[in-house]
């Protein structure tokens, strides 16, 4: 079980990194998602798989083959956080497409490297 999970994590990380290295921002966003899910699975696997019984402890006796609740709690937190960040990344992607008319990372990041524009004299958009 652990071996299958570990292999899955490996494959997912490979796909995630491959997507992250792409020059298209859409694929970079997807890469972050795939990588994030791979890591969630890795965290779950690192905390032992295979426990079947719910981790409630009736009368102070830990049931045989109890699942480890801690990695589940960690991953649940990470999934929620990852979802929020994914939504933000999507918003950035949408605005970037609108402002730059492109999703090509090279072209987008070059804009920040251009010389700083002068501040307009009317005080709008101040420093």
């Amino acid at each position: 079980m652990e071996l299958i999970a570990a292999l899955t994590v490996g494959v997912l990380v490979a796909i995630g990194v491959w997507l992250l290295l792409d020059r298209n921002l859409v694929r970079v966003v997807l890469g972050v998602v795939v990588l994030g899910n791979a890591i969630n699975l890795a965290v779950l696997t690192a905390g032992r798989l295979g426990g079947q019984a719910a981790a409630f402890v009736p009368g102070g006796v830990v049931p045989e083959a109890a699942a480890n609740p801690l990695p589940q709690a960690l991953v649940l937190t990470a999934i929620v956080i990852g979802f929020a960040l994914f939504v933000f990344a999507l918003a950035v992607l949408k605005r970037t497409r609108e402002e730059h008319d492109s999703t090509e990372t090279d072209r987008i990041t070059r804009v920040a490297e251009a010389p700083a524009p002068d501040l307009p004299a009317d005080g709008k958009e101040g420093a």
Partner: peptide
């Protein structure tokens, strides 16, 4: 603005 988004990415 385009410049800020560029750095933000």
């Amino acid at each position: 603005g385009a410049r800020r988004l560029s750095g933000t990415v």
